[in-house]
């Protein structure tokens, strides 16, 4: 396996400034030779790619190509059978799921994974849980440090709420919200932890055109304002080609292309596997 195919994309590299004025940082995530097998089924075989700080990286591929499995490996939900994943210089071969959040990885899910019985505010507050350290006795007494901590974190959460324009549903139980808003609340929950890297699993699935545009704008704003690195899976090709700096293409668990949207678009294997499929 070649050490790094990404060298083939000269446009995006550490220190480069993108046309829209963002500066790409150093490598934040390196996935090397990752394989994942469930019994006899190989979900991923020898996939390698990297992500630079501050870029928007897309993972695309037909259904069952292993995209979600890839994200699950990155945030420790699945343990890769082979290969290493290095995040911020730290390799995490066998990591517990909750540790990923500690390191600064947040994610959203393909099927919304909100806490349905809780209000929007409480849902987003759970995103701050790692930053809240007071023990339950202080909580029970609700004095001094516990109150202070609660209010400080509430302020962070309110900034996120303001950023994503969901002030009006603050006190609504999320189970009652429409789908598009639930997706936005989920993004808010992920953002509340102030992650270094945000994994988005099909953030625009099931949305209409306007909602997709809104979501794209939020994703780009997050990237722009907080400098958050974004790795996203998306099926809508126009969205992917528009907002991502580089694209990895998976098919049957293997990487078949990696590069800027233009390079990927022109790649014959990608066209065969995915883009060139004629719809009837």
């Amino acid at each position: 396996m070649a050490p790094n195919d990404t060298a083939a994309s000269p446009n995006i590299a550490p220190g480069v400034t993108t046309p829209d004025g963002r500066t790409i940082g150093d490598e934040i995530l390196n996935v090397e030779d990752v394989s994942l097998a469930f019994g006899g089924v190989k979900a991923l075989s020898n996939v390698s790619f990297n992500v630079f700080e501050g870029e928007v990286r897309a993972i695309i591929g037909p259904n069952g190509a292993g995209k979600s499995s890839m994200l699950n490996c990155i945030n420790g939900f699945y343990k890769p059978t082979e290969g290493t994943i290095t995040f911020k210089g730290q390799s995490h071969a066998a990591m517990e799921t909750y540790e990923a959040a500690n390191q600064g990885i947040a994610r959203t899910f393909q099927n919304i994974a909100l806490f349905r019985g809780m209000t929007t505010l409480d849902n987003i507050m759970t995103g701050r849980n790692l930053q809240m350290k007071t023990n339950f006795i202080m909580q029970a007494l609700y004095y001094g440090p516990a109150v202070k901590e609660e209010l400080e974190n509430r302020e962070v959460v309110e900034r996120v709420i303001d950023f994503l324009e969901i002030e009006s549903i603050r006190k609504t139980v999320v189970g009652r919200l429409p789908y598009g808003l639930q997706k936005r609340v989920e993004l808010a929950r992920a953002l509340a932890s102030e992650p270094d890297m945000l994994l988005l699993d099909e953030p625009m699935a099931g949305m209409n055109h306007e909602e997709k545009e809104d979501m794209c704008r939020y994703i780009l704003d997050v990237n722009d304002e907080f400098g958050t690195t974004i790795v996203l899976i998306e099926h809508d090709m126009s969205v992917v080609m528009d907002i991502s700096d580089r694209v990895v293409v998976l098919d049957y668990g293997q990487k078949i292309a990696d590069g800027t949207p233009d390079e990927v678009r022109g790649n014959q294997r990608v066209i065969d596997a995915y883009l060139g499929v004629q719809h009837d």
Binding site: F77, L114, F115, T126, M132, A140
Partner: peptide
Amino acid sequence: AAKNMVRGHVGRSWMAIRDMDIAAEIIGIR
């Protein structure tokens, strides 16, 4: 005391585990 606990982060982590344990774990709740 119970009301104070359930409206704070202790209670939120309980409810998170109750509503969707996988998502809770990915947020960093042990």
